[in-house]
Design a protein around this nucleic acid. Structure first.
Length: 282
DNA sequence: CTGCAGGCGTGCC
DNA sequence: GGCACGCCTGCA
């Protein structure tokens, strides 16, 4: 286990922010995370002091080697980016956004696996977070590789395109995917037979990637933007769901000032999403 | 019982 | 371009 401290990094907030459905707080201060076939345990070692507006700096123990952390997990959590600089772009007069940023200041935009993100956000349409988690869990338990952790516990990786291409639509429906099963099956088959090349997406700019994603069966504007933001790290992507749409109508009737945020408006979208989900509940 | 949750495809204009 | 409508499922 290695121990590290970071500013603007709070896993509790990230786990609740709805960008990753395989990061969960299994017990207070104990997190489990699966990314494809990798498993990571994270232990919150900071004394939790929830001072409103305080710099969210936290210390965590990670169940991996220094090398794995530097090579995989640090980029995954986007730890080398300066989120303080993003927050400072929010002008004092925008009270709403200042509050949102201070409330969810530990959020970062993860760099998740492209295939996994495509499937989980296909599942997310017309769906709610607990049910999305359940669908993803069933998919992994039924078709994913087993991953054994250091204490001998079994976890399940995310099934790859070849595996899901071999599963019938009816079997997929057993994971309570509903009508989304045919979207996932077709996408899996397209990737598996080579007619859809995921590697190509990595070399595209935002507009090109978005358009290419939207040409996939079952992927529309909202899901394409989520994939651009959470997997391809196009931080200018600003996914608008029914929830965010209501906020924009209420707080920004003249439109969200995208141009104030030189290509990183998507990060602000996450602060807003998290703020709307939880601030009234406290 | 209806309505709806982090939409999208289809058919129509 | 815009706008209906249906779609799986679980939960209020």
């Amino acid at each position: 286990m290695i121990v590290k401290t970071f500013a603007d990094f709070d896993l509790k907030q990230i786990a609740a922010s709805g960008q990753c459905f395989r990061l969960e707080e299994a017990a207070p201060g104990r997190f489990n995370l699966l990314a494809s076939d990798r498993y990571l345990e994270i232990l919150d070692m900071s004394a939790r002091q929830d001072i409103p507006g305080a710099e969210p700096s936290r210390t965590y123990g990670f169940s991996c080697t220094e090398q794995e952390f530097e090579e995989f997990w640090s980029p995954y959590f986007d730890l080398s980016a300066d989120y303080g600089a993003v927050k400072r772009l929010v002008p004092e007069r925008d009270r709403y956004l200042r509050n949102a940023v201070s409330f969810g200041g530990g959020i970062r935009i993860l760099r998740q696996d492209l295939w996994e993100t495509m499937v989980t956000f296909l599942i997310s349409q017309q769906n709610n977070i607990p049910r999305i988690r359940r669908c993803v869990r069933l998919l992994c338990e039924n078709y994913g590789n087993t991953v054994i952790d250091l204490s001998g516990q079994t976890h399940y990786g995310f099934p790859g395109p070849d595996k899901l291409a071999s599963v019938s639509e009816d079997e997929l429906r057993n994971c309570s995917l509903g009508y989304r099963a045919k979207y996932i099956r077709k996408t899996a088959r397209d990737v598996s037979d080579g007619s859809l090349c995921l590697e190509a997406f990595r070399h595209m700019d935002y507009a090109t990637a978005r358009e290419a994603l939207m040409s996939c069966y079952g992927i529309g504007i909202k899901v394409a933007d989520c994939i651009c933001l959470f997997a391809l790290h196009h931080i200018e992507a600003f996914p608008i769901d029914t929830h965010i749409r209501q906020v924009l109508e209420r707080e920004y009737p003249k439109g969200f000032p995208v141009s104030d945020y030189n290509g990183c408006a998507g990060i602000l979208q996450q602060y807003i999403f998290y703020y709307e989900l939880f601030h009234s509940a406290i």
